[in-house]
Amino acid sequence: MIHKSNVKQSVLFTILIIILLASFVLGVSIGAVSIPPSEVVRIFFSHIPGIDRYLSAGLVPEHETIILTMRFPRVVIAALVGAGLALAGATFQGLFRNPMADPYVIGVSSGAALGAVCSILVQSIWDIPIRFGIPAFAFVFAVVTIFLVYSLARVGGKVPVMTLLLSGIAVNSLLSALVSFCMFFSGNQLHQVVFWLLGGFSGRGWDYVYIFLPYGVVGSTVIFIYARELNAMLLGEEPAQHLGIEVERVKRRLLIAAALLTGACVSVSGLIGFVGLVIPHIVRMLFGPDHRTLLPAVALIGAAFLLVADVLARVVIAPGELPVGIVTALVGGPFFIYLLRRQKNSMF
C-alpha cells in the first residue's frame, strides 16, 4: 500500500494524467483509417487559436474530418463514461461500506436498460424515429428507478443502507425480468437490443457528449464535494454523525448524484460492466482509502481504462467491432484476479 507522502502522490497523479492523455491520442489514432499519433496531436493543436497557423500545413483534410466528427467525440464520451462509472462505483462502495457494490447495485442500470429497450421497440413497432430516443428513454427510466428504490428503502425518515441494498436488488430483478420479457417479443429488433445492452460507443457523436455533460458534471461535482464525508462514513454512519455530519442528508445527496451519474453513463453507452466495480478497488490498492485522493484517481484511471478497452473493442475483430462491455470484463477480470491473489489481505 502506498501512503500519502505528498511527493509520491503528485508523481502518481502526473503519471495518471500522462497515461490518460496517451490513451486519448491512441484512441483517436487507431481505427479503420490509421492516423499517426503525431498527426492527431497536430490536428488537435491546430484548432487552438494563436498557434493554429504553424501547425495546419500539410494536414490531410479527410483525417481532420474523421477525427473531429467521429473519433474525437467517441473517445471523449468513452473517457467520460469511464470516469463516471468508476466515480459512481467508488461512491456506492463507500456509502454501502461494501466491496461488492457497483454503480448498478441499486437497479439504475436495469431501469435504464428497460428504457432503452422500450425506446427501440416503440420506434420499430410504430415506425417513428425518435431523435435520441434511446438515451432519453434510458435516462428517464433510470431516474424513475432511483426514486422508486429510494422511496421503497425509506424507513421513518431514514434510508438504512441495508434496506436500500435489498430494495435495489428486488427492483433490479423485477426490471431485468421486464427487459427479458421485452426482448422475448422484440423479434428482429433483438440484435439491436442485445448490442445496446452489451454497451459500446460506436457511432456516438458530439450530441451524446452534450447529453451526458450536465448530469456528469453535476453528479461528479457533488461526489467530489463530499469526499471528506465519505471518509468519515466509512467508519460507520453513527460515528460520522458524531463527527458533525448530517448523515442522512449527505447520503441522500450522494446517492442521487451517483445514481444520476450512472444513469447518464448507461443512457449514452449501454451496460458496461466491471469498470465501476474494479477500478475503485485497484485505485484503493494504490492510493489507500482516502476519498480525497481516491476519487480523482478513480476518475482518471476509469477514463483511461475505458478508452483502452474501446480501442481494443475496435481492433480485435476489425473491421468489425466488439461491444466494449465484453472487453472490459475480459481484460478487467483476469487483472483483478491477479491483484487479488497478490494482495491477499483485505481489499477494502
Binding site: L235, G236, E238, G288
Partner: peptide, 15 residues
C-alpha cells in the same frame, strides 16, 4: 460533544 461508540468500526486501511 464527542462520542466513542461501542462498535469500533475501524475496518478500513486508514492510518
Amino acid at each position: 460533544m464527542a462520542v466513542i461508540p461501542q462498535e469500533q468500526g475501524l475496518n478500513f486501511p486508514f492510518t
